[in-house]
Amino acid sequence: MDLNLVGKRALVTGSSSGLGEAVAKMLAAEGAAVVVHGRDKDRTERVADEIRAAGGSATTVLGDLAHDREAADVARAAAERGPVDILVNNAGFYRHLGWSEATPEEWLATYDINVVSGVRMIRHLVPAMRERGWGRVVTIGGGLASQPMNTHPQYNATLAARHNLAVSLARELKGTGVTSNVVSPGAILVDSVKDLLTGIAPARGWGETWEEIERDSVEALIPNDQERFGEPHEIAAAVAYLCSEHAQYVSGATLRVDGGLIRSAF
């Protein structure tokens, strides 16, 4: 299927690794000119280099979206070579904390990075999309938005806010040709997730080899119809669809990509 992304320019925030990297690479493979965003120059340049080596178009932009001035600089730099047609709000942050460790300061910092940073980019880039009569905003959310765990409550709450703001934005953009949607991943096997599971496995009796840890952690934490973790490219495919011409009639939607996650474990 041709997604008709040739000639479109896409900014993927937090795309120097993980899900954002997978999204940037897939959009580039579909013909979009991608702006790879990160805070670490070497990691950000690596992703862009790999996109270009594969025949795609990529530039880079650095900046911390938790600060107004840097966010404005990122938006301005992203649009230097042409208007941004697609904004993927992927950048996010969390620490694995319990209620007692998650101080009010931690809540505020997490909210600023995970929610307000996306609002900053929307405010900078979406007005021009509205004027042109075409645009895509995709927010990366998660199942913890609606069925939170007892751990990292500050992160769970920011996911709920991300889902909510994306739907509110869709209502605001009624009739403009610009859509706003959410992709809601389940547990995706990026490096940070693998490191976390390996770290907590001994205390939970999940075995010693990665094969044992993966099997037991899926059963204990994320029972789902596919009986496995998701892969980054599966999230990227959902984002690419929502960015395409074929998704013009999809707005204010949450697309779950979680293997049919069953939350009965919590």
Score class of each variant (00 low, 15 high):
D42Y: 04
R43Q: 10
R43K: 15
E45P: 07
R46E: 12
R46T: 13
V47S: 01
V47P: 00
A48Q: 01
A48N: 00
D49Y: 01
D49W: 00
E50H: 15
E50S: 15
E50Q: 15
R52S: 07
A53W: 13
A54I: 09
G55D: 11
G55Q: 10
G56N: 02
G56P: 02
S57M: 08
S57Y: 05
A58S: 03
A58R: 02
T59C: 09
T59E: 14
T59R: 12
T59Q: 12
V61T: 14
G63A: 02
D64L: 09
L65N: 04
L65C: 10
D68Y: 14
E70N: 08
E70I: 08
D73G: 07
D73S: 11
V74C: 04
V74D: 02
V74G: 02
A75W: 05
A78T: 03
A78D: 01
E80N: 10
E80P: 07
G82I: 00
G82L: 01
P83A: 15
V84S: 03
V84G: 02
V84Y: 03
D85P: 08
I86F: 11
L87D: 06
L87C: 12
N89A: 13
N89F: 04
N90G: 04
A91T: 11
G92F: 01
F93A: 10
Y94N: 09
Y94M: 08
Y94F: 11
R95K: 15
H96V: 12
H96D: 14
G98W: 10
W99I: 11
W99K: 05
S100R: 08
E101N: 12
P104W: 05
P104T: 09
P104Q: 09
W107S: 00
W107Q: 03
L108K: 09
A109V: 10
A109R: 13
A109D: 14
T110Q: 07
T110H: 03
Y111V: 03
D112Q: 15
I113Q: 13
I113V: 14
V115C: 03
V115H: 01
V115F: 03
V119D: 01
V119G: 02
V119A: 10
R120V: 15
R120N: 14
I122G: 03
R123D: 12
H124G: 01
H124V: 03
V126T: 08
P127M: 07
P127I: 06
R130E: 13
E131K: 13
G133N: 11
G133E: 11
G133M: 11
W134N: 07
G135Q: 02
G135H: 04
G135C: 06
G135Y: 05
